[in-house]
Amino acid sequence: MLNYIWLGMIVVAVVTAGARDAFVDGSPHIAAVTKAAVDSAETAVKLSIGLIGVMSLWLGMMRLAEKGGLVGLIAHAMRPVMSRLFPDVPKDHPAMGCMLMNMAANVLGLANAATPLGIKAMEELEKLNRTPGTATNAMCVFLAVNTSSIQLIPATAVAILSASGSKNPTAIIGAALVATTVSTFVGIVAVKLLEKLPCYRLPDPQQPENLGSTSSATNGETL
């Protein structure tokens, strides 16, 4: 899926820019595409490096919350919901606590805390992954919850409306709450249905290496 989307974006970009330059107007769109490619690569590295600071801060905090038993307490309280959402994850696995902390940060709109906590949760989920390099069902559910936005208050949007002279910038809060509930619900239903489709089926876990040697040994015996 991602292979095609990625390729598609690059091909559409170059073809569109080329076509505009050739047939529509003279302004150099293709030069803009080149510049965007180089600049975006630089931005990506800056973003990743920039993430290291907040990441270390929240991973440190997370460690304190974990050691102090705070994460376990929250995880225990939310157990019925979490075990239904993530049936493949053992009920007391640290991944549950991390995912909950990430969702809590998302609900409160703390984006710079949510990302490090989410990454930590993914690392915990990866420990349960028997097919490295391929996403597990639990990872996809977690991603769907994250990408559907579960924040309670759209603080940035309210701030922009307010700065632009809106008389009632908080008017959108109720609407956003309804819309975000719908998107989260659809995201969870979609991810749970899609995981059953044959084209998204999880590949068989990689065969342990000794299995190959035993089968060749049996072959040798029969020969």
Partner: peptide, 27 residues
Amino acid sequence: VAVYFGAVGVKRTRHAIPAGLLADAAG
């Protein structure tokens, strides 16, 4: 998707993107 899956080296994202996009469309 890039950040979360990148952090654990997952390249085959399966149904995560279609589900995420459906959620966005519904929103």
